[in-house]
Design a protein around this nucleic acid. Sequence first.
RNA 1: GCGGAUGUGGCGGAAUUGGCAGACGCGCUAGACUUAGGAUCUAGUGUCUAACGAUGUGGGGGUUCGAGUCCCUUCAUCCGCACCA
Length: 826
Amino acid sequence: MHYKSRDIEKRWQEKWDKEKSFSATKKDDKEKYYVLEMFPYPSGNLHMGHVRNYSIGDVVARFKKMEGYNVLHPMGWDSFGLPAENAAIKRQIHPNDWTWSNIDNMRKQLKELGIGYDWDREVATCHPDYYKWTQWMFLQLYKKGLAYKKKSFVNWCPSCSTVLANEQVVNGACERCSSTVNKKDLEQWFFKITHYAQRLLDDIEKLSGWPDKVKTMQQNWIGRSEGVEVDFNVEGTDKKVRIYTTRPDTIFGVTYMVVAPEHPLVKELIKGTEQEQTCNDFIKKMQFLNDIDRTSTDVEKEGVFTGRYVINPLNNDKVPLYLGNYVLAEYGTGVVMAVPAHDQRDFEFSKKYNLPIKVVIQPKGEELKAEDMKEAYVDEGYLVNSDQFNGVLSDEAIGKIIDYVEAKSFGERKINFRLRDWLISRQRYWGAPIPIIYCEDCGPVPVPEEDLPVVLPTDVKFTGVGESPLSSSESFINAPCPTCGKKGKREVDTMDTFVCSSWYFLRYCDPCNQKLPFDKESISYWMPVDQYIGGVEHAILHLLYSRFFMKALYDMGFVAHDEPFKNLLTQGMVLKDGAKMSKSLGNVVSPEEIIEKFGADTARLFILFASPPEKDLEWSDQGVEGCYRFINRVWRIINDFSHAAKENNDINTSNFTKEDKELWFMVNNTVRRVTEDVGHRFNFNTAISAIMELVNSLYNYKDKVPDENKNNGILKVALENVILMIAPFIPHASQELWQFIGKEGDVHDQKWPEYDKSALVKDEIEIVVQINGKLRDKIVVSSGLDKKQIEEEALKSDKIKPAIEGQNIVKVITVPGKLVNIVVKA
RNA sequence: GCGGAUGUGGCGGAAUUGGCAGACGCGCUAGACUUAGGAUCUAGUGUCUAACGAUGUGGGGGUUCGAGUCCCUUCAUCCGCACCA
């Protein structure tokens, strides 16, 4: 019997496929376990990152199944998106054809990897049966006021005359023609994720099974800050400008004020001033800059005077109002008070434009002088030059000044978030159409739910020019107004693909439902996802959007939980020669070629063995060969001892030899270690090495113990356990071996092995003896000895005795079962 | 700048609660079997040393009987956010 990966793998894959071995059905008497890997974009071929992601998921799924859980392990396709459209433009293939042929190929590759999915639950976001419900989601959010329209900027390439996605803008230039990208404002749809900012932040606490790194990233992304808004009157007008600050303790130090060039008030304020022309030039210049050139910290601060002055309500100081590149229109009020003495950005700006610096916070034990300052002083101190607040500690002053501002009605306290609303409009073809019809009389009207899906038309030209490709489809754009029946026009933008992927995990629970996206009963049973696995690149957007969807659906009563993913594992990248595999670097290893040569089991085993799942993994051809050798080693030892496994052999511990005892200990201890490593820690690399050690012991036993003395009872259990424990990692080979040793049924339907605790208790144990913390000897003692007896044994040891002669024993520390440390002094 | 990691042999990595550093694998060395070996098996393999032994987890300091693990400090690399007022 020889190990031929190709034949074996094919045979079992066909059987699993035909018998739907991994299909999941709701069972009320069984505890469920939902394991999910982030679904792929169907680019055409699996890469090693996919192999890693799905191998990890499959180990978890198969292990949990063997542990007795009712496991849901589905797969699908995140199949809308830009590459399909680019293929259409470049090669004149319809995005639909391109995408589906890619899906077919990748599905085949996944099956060749032997991943145990329930293929009856497969979803593809580009299928009308799916995007119908994505559109339905949009309508629900619209109904709740969580979807709205407003003007916003898009990246616009003047030469291609088309909208570009952020990914298509490379260093401020169009990825296709390299001309400079500028901004164009369009009416676009948004989801009001900011409505959930506080809950998204608070509930991070609930995510105990998420990595801290991801939780911190989400926290920072949401970026809550507490502060106050204050109105400053514009001198000589009846207008006010409102600022937002988190440092009201420095408000007496304001020496000028800066407003974002896009701020709606700016046009009015500069009208008729001497500076109107310079201001307009500055605004125009800013408009042509892309976000990176405009908002990177390296960019020098720049601004112009507006010709206007504003009055600080706290001390009636009159200060100039500037336009500045470093103020963001979308955050706070779009206007900042500038305190150069205590804010580094303001400090730099004031130096450049010769604006005064006024110290209002004095640190303990030294005195700042404005003219000597090299940088802003941003730390704590006592207030000065601040009227009635002089002498107050800055931390306390924050609250006191806010109270004062509110009492005097100068403004009010405010909480701000860094998180912005989610712009979902895309001027693209290959996405879910936004289900809205514009009517001259009724305005934007949602498409009635019974008319969904709004199907993507096929008569679209892919020119790569213009705003939205859908506007070129006559059959699509014209539609009667659902309210009044008059001629209307359809929305021609499609949704961001992140919308499609924000709820796919729910559809898996009830994938064929024609009446609803899912029924509540299925959702209540399967959700939440017990283990979610994917790349850390989705730590913020995808995970945050999914959390937002879950909360919105929860509030609408469609789901029973308000967090979608209980545990999250962010797997590391697959590297080759220290760099991420990429075509441009030429360091790509294709899964197909490895499967062809060594089989899927070897590929999976290597990728799981080479590194713990959350760390990056360095590809090694020799490492792969090592794993192939190991499978062969398992194959041979099971072949050698198969007779023992096939017979009825009982275990009688009373007639164990020393070698038997050792092997029996190994067998049981390995079950313990592997169960812990796989089940509790997800340390597949150490689980595999534990199995390797057991296999090594079996070879050792085979060599050292004469045939007539071999204990077939132990060997039988050992072989069975090796096959069962290795099954989640190398399912095909273990399935073949399971059958080979005469077992019925599928290996993944077997019970996960248990261990005999009494076998882990040893009669004799090795104790380390140290002198002053340094290893001096190892002694073997009976495991029944108490502390004192162990100590006596240690002091009697041949190596220790001479070493401590003539020295004073200061104390002896004994850790039962581990070591004795003798502390001596000369 | 802010935030988060990581740093252990020639390489990937292990050490779960402060208790034998280097499990397991790769590579390398020697040997066995063999017509042959890029198959398989056996033994060895951190560094220095002929050996006894000494030394060793990025560097420096500390706590402790005992530190890869805890504390302080410093360096390096990687990742995320990036003018958020």
